[in-house]
Design a protein around this nucleic acid. Sequence first.
DNA 1: TCTAAATGCTAAATGGGTTTAGCAAATCAT
DNA 2: ATGATTTGCTAAACCCATTTAGCATTTAGA
Lengths: 355, 355
Amino acid sequence: MEANHSSRFKRGKKITLADIAESLNVSKTLVSLVLNNKGDQNGISKETQRRVIEIAQRFDYKPNQLARGLRLGKTNTVGFIVADISNIFYSKLARMIEDELNKFGYNLIICSSDEKLDKEAKMIQFLRDKHVDGLIVSSTLNDSKIFNSLADEHYPFVLIDRHFPNLQANYVGVDNYSGSFQAVNKLISLGHKKIAILSISPSHISSVNERNEGYFDALKKAGIGTDNFLYCQIPFDNIKGGVDWAIKELLRSDQEISAIYTVNNNLALHCLETLRDLQISVPDQISLISFDDIEFFNFVSPSISAISQPLDEIANQAVRILMKEINHRDDDISKERVILPAKLVLRESVRSLAK
Amino acid sequence: MEANHSSRFKRGKKITLADIAESLNVSKTLVSLVLNNKGDQNGISKETQRRVIEIAQRFDYKPNQLARGLRLGKTNTVGFIVADISNIFYSKLARMIEDELNKFGYNLIICSSDEKLDKEAKMIQFLRDKHVDGLIVSSTLNDSKIFNSLADEHYPFVLIDRHFPNLQANYVGVDNYSGSFQAVNKLISLGHKKIAILSISPSHISSVNERNEGYFDALKKAGIGTDNFLYCQIPFDNIKGGVDWAIKELLRSDQEISAIYTVNNNLALHCLETLRDLQISVPDQISLISFDDIEFFNFVSPSISAISQPLDEIANQAVRILMKEINHRDDDISKERVILPAKLVLRESVRSLAK
DNA sequence: TCTAAATGCTAAATGGGTTTAGCAAATCAT
DNA sequence: ATGATTTGCTAAACCCATTTAGCATTTAGA
């Protein structure tokens, strides 16, 4: 007794609201209301609702998300900008954010900035043009200008991992300073005095600076002088070459360093590589601790000590805050700063100098 | 002399074609044509074009991609489905695909299927609802039904890494069989006879099967009997526990295995972990080769031998083919199968048994 | 002078949903 | 019997860019 569907319901062609409406001789409005569960509150009879739902299911109707997005100004998509998604730290985080967003019916567009300012700016623009509903960003930018204007427009975003001291914005990260302090302090308590740090330059990046400070303060507080020679700034665009050179310089000198602290996992990995090539034993000759704990550190021999970040917590909080922002876009809600603890995980790569 | 913009050009509000048109007292059509570089072919005067472009630049006009997508049926977005984006193999690949797609003005939505059939099916549906222009998929599905219907609809997609023997579809992958054969053959030529394989189960996944076959054939061809005891199938949802158990079983037996071959990087990493915990030296007691070469393998001591896949080539080819498909969606062009060579990279983790 | 062609531009339809404002018919109250 | 409500539904506007079909006006040609 149904109307004749054959004309509109062609094989392979997606069916639309209008198709369903026509086949049932009702309006698009009615179909839309029913399928959005607003049938009852709009007094659509149960029987009509049933018929609409049946046809929709039978022909596997799925609303065109572009049309929907255009009308609602929503895409249910979030942009995620990081330096490099192939860095395991970010890909783990991406995975957790993806899973968390899926729970809310959102998905993720991931973009890698390569630590390039203009590239990041372009990606932000690009994602905005796509009407992505919000952004999660580990920014490489050296000033907060772009984020200031995003904030002016009430555009929802959450900074993670890195932030801008003067920008009033949502931020989720770990306590880099105290993580770093803990790590260096541990080395000191094991008798190490000549502790080199491999860090990144040029650094306007908040997390790196905070980690550097933790290192210097730990040494100062222990009454051990800091030495600029031990402070190695590796250019971020040449980690491999930089680490190799730095370590060889450190070893060539008469300063007998006994420990190396690296401020991220990438530095640690290249550090491992160089030490292996030089046949220097960890931890017998050099103790090693890195910021960022990655699974891999636990697989190798010797296993690597590291400062672990609660990635799942970072992902959960970032998504929670972003969802709040998106759902209250014009409500001028207050911004959150979430600082999570970083935990030192001690493994085989450090040894005590005490005899 | 310009018209009064103040009414339409409010701060923070995005401007539209209509805004520009109204402010210049021309039609939307004209503005659209000019901004899409079709002014000349439609006989719009140079002067008018100049004025349109000037206003567009001044107010930083960016077309609403949702409206554009709705009208054109294009989103300039590609979906990428893999088992787990936090697996370094896939995240490296994702990065390369992302970069490659960016060159064509496309970007990427990445989804992790967790090797779950229904999850993958849902993600495909989800991406299609979003009108993603095409898919790149490393499928975990055990039959090609969904891809058959995608093909029926001329929906552009490229399979990578894994394929379906009976499906006529675009595919880019490496020669898993010969890579595997090479690796095992190398071990044999170094005098190894008791070579265990850690593989994945249950396996309907083409790449795993091809790798398994390479292992068995290498042994057979060398006149070494194959032994089901040495063929360990690790359940994919419990790699860590499975590897641990398998290795302990292998070592407990009176079969004195001298080498382990793992069919992917994940298995190799957990293998390393277990061997370290058991204080078994690589390569002195056990030689190790893995399929999938990842950077880590070159950082550690001993460095790990592996069969390397040309990720950049996989990414390039996949994107090239997908772009071709997208641009000739209705032309019924022939499908491509690209099989790239896999290369054995020998490092410290294998030793010769010859005295 | 009058038609044909070129020039420069526009109205309206389109894509596919969501939402506002409101209409017709049926039911109820008085 | 008549006005007030309720019930059930719809027309049309809207989101914004693209594109088709075609309209004036000017210039060229005969």
